[in-house]
Design a protein around this nucleic acid. Structure first.
Lengths: 242, 242
DNA sequence: CCCCGCCTCACCATTTCTGATGAGGTGCAA
DNA sequence: TTGCACCTCATCAGAAATGGTGAGGCGGGG
C-alpha cells in the first residue's frame, strides 16, 4: 500500500470529485482513489430508506449482484454494525459470530473482497445513511497502520462522496420534505414514544378529535398509509427525533 | 483572523480532544480553537429530540440562557436550515426572511454573536443531530476566504467534537439494542412500511394469530408500549432498516 | 386586504388492534 | 440429553383506531 502518497494527487481527486457530474464523478473518483491508495477496493454505498440502494465503487459486478440478490443488506455485519455507530470502524471490530454473518464473509472473500476492511458511516438529512468503505488483503498490522494514518483523509472523502451522492436525489432537498406543523410534530413525537391517542391528546391539552386531525394531516403530508407508517416515516426522515 | 496558523497547533488541539474526558475536553477544545483561529465564537450544539439540548462553546452565558428560554431552537434559521442540509453552510445563505428570524438575528447580534457565521451539520446514530458553528464579526470577503480555506479542517473538527459528545450518552451504544428474531424483524419491517396486520400476515404467509405473537414478543423485547412504539424503537435503534 | 395554513372541535359506523393464555413442532447449543 | 429460543396456530371479549367531512377563529405573507 502506498504509504508515501503525495497529497497533491489526493487533493486533485477530491477537487475533481467536487466539480464533476455526480454519476460519473463518484465512479471515477472511486477508481482513482483505489489506485492512489493502492488498495483492493473502495466503495460508496448508499442505503436508502425504502430499501433502495445505490452503490459505486470497485467491487466486481458479480459480487454486487450477488449482494443484492441474496439480500445481504439485512445480514451484512458492516451495515448492521455501522448503523449503530458514528465513528469509522475496522471490520475486525464488528460482530461476525452469527452463522449467517460467517456465511456472508466466506462468500465475500470468494468474490474478491479483501480480508481487511474499514468503513465510515455517513448520515445526511431525512435519515439518509451511507457507508464509505475501503478494503484490502493484508496483515492486521499493516492495515491498522494504513487506516490510522489515513483516517482523517478518509473521513473527508466520505463526506465529499456523500455530498456528491446527495445531488442524485434532488427530492431529498429541503423543498421535497413536506414540513410538518409544530402540532403535527408534537403528535407524531408523542405517538412515537408509545402514547395512545387519548394520552397524547391529554398531554397536549387538546381534544382527541383535534389530535386526530393532526395525525391525519401528518399522515397525508408524509404520504403514509396509517399512523404507524407515518411515525416510521417521520423518524427515518428525521422530521421527529425519538 | 489567523490565516498563517500552524497546523501543528491544530493537530495538538484535536489530539487532546480525542483523548480527554468528554465534558471537559469539549469545552477546553472550544476555547483553544477560538484562540487558534482568532474568531469571536466557536460552538458545538447537540440538538436532541424532546427539546433537550447540550451545548458547549464560547457564547456568553446570557445568550445561551436567552436562547433556551425564548425557545429560539424552533425558529433559529441556522437550526432549521442545517437540519435539511448535509454540507456546511454560511449563515448568509440561510433564510432570514421570516419576522421571527429577523427578531432572533437582532437579538443575537446584541448578545455578542458575530455577523458572520458558518455551521456544519453532523448526524449520528438514532437520529442524533448536532451543529458545529464558528462565527465572527468581519466583512463578507474575509469571511468567505477564511471559511473556504479552513473548510476541511472544520469538518474534521465537527466530526471529532461529535464523536466525543456521543460518549456523553452511553445508552446510544450498540449494546442497548436487544436482537429481534428474523420473523420479528420481518413483522416490524412490514408494519413500518404501512401494512396492516392482515397484510403483513398475508405477505409472510402466516396466520394473523401467529403474526400477533411476533409483534407481541418484539414489543416486549423492545420495551415498547404498543405497536407504533415498537416500530419507532426498532427504527431508531437500527434494528430494522426502512 | 385577502388568502392560506394552522389550531381547534364534533359526529359515528366500521375496522383493527390488544392482552392473556395454551399448545405442538423444530433446531441449535451446552 | 435437556434445555431454550424460535415458529406456528387458536380463542375471546373489550378497547382503540380509522375515515371522511364540516366549520369557526387566528395570524402571517403577498
Amino acid at each position: 500500500m502506498g504509504y508515501a502518497m503525495t497529497t497533491s494527487s489526493l487533493d486533485g481527486i477530491m477537487e475533481q470529485l467536487e466539480c464533476a457530474d455526480a454519476l460519473d464523478g463518484l465512479q471515477t473518483a472511486s477508481e482513482a482513489l483505489r489506485n492512489h491508495y493502492q488498495i483492493d477496493h473502495l466503495v460508496y454505498h448508499w442505503v436508502s430508506s425504502s430499501g433502495q440502494q445505490y452503490g459505486c465503487g470497485t467491487y466486481c459486478p458479480d459480487w454486487v449482484a450477488r449482494y443484492l440478490d441474496a439480500g445481504y443488506l439485512r445480514i451484512d455485519p458492516v451495515i448492521v454494525g455501522c448503523y449503530q455507530r458514528f465513528h469509522p470502524v475496522d471490520w475486525k471490530r464488528l460482530d461476525w459470530s452469527s452463522k449467517a454473518a460467517r456465511a456472508f464473509q466466506k462468500d465475500a472473500l470468494e468474490h474478491g473482497v479483501g480480508n481487511q476492511g474499514y468503513s465510515i458511516p455517513i448520515r445526511g438529512p431525512n435519515g439518509q445513511f451511507a457507508l464509505f468503505t475501503i478494503n484490502h488483503s493484508c496483515h492486521d498490522e499493516a492495515w491498522a497502520e494504513f487506516t490510522e494514518s489515513n483516517r482523517r483523509q478518509l473521513i473527508l472523502l466520505a463526506h465529499a462522496f456523500n455530498q456528491k451522492a446527495l445531488e442524485l436525489e434532488p427530492e431529498r432537498s429541503p423543498m421535497a420534505a413536506q414540513a410538518l406543523s409544530p402540532r403535527e410534530v408534537d403528535a407524531m413525537t408523542l405517538l412515537a414514544v408509545g402514547y395512545s391517542r387519548a394520552q397524547v391528546a391529554d398531554t397536549l391539552s387538546i381534544s382527541e378529535n383535534t389530535l386526530r386531525v393532526y395525525i391525519e394531516s401528518a399522515r397525508h403530508k408524509l404520504g403514509a398509509l396509517n399512523t404507524t407508517h407515518a411515525v416510521a416515516k417521520a423518524i427515518s426522515r428525521g422530521v421527529i427525533v425519538v
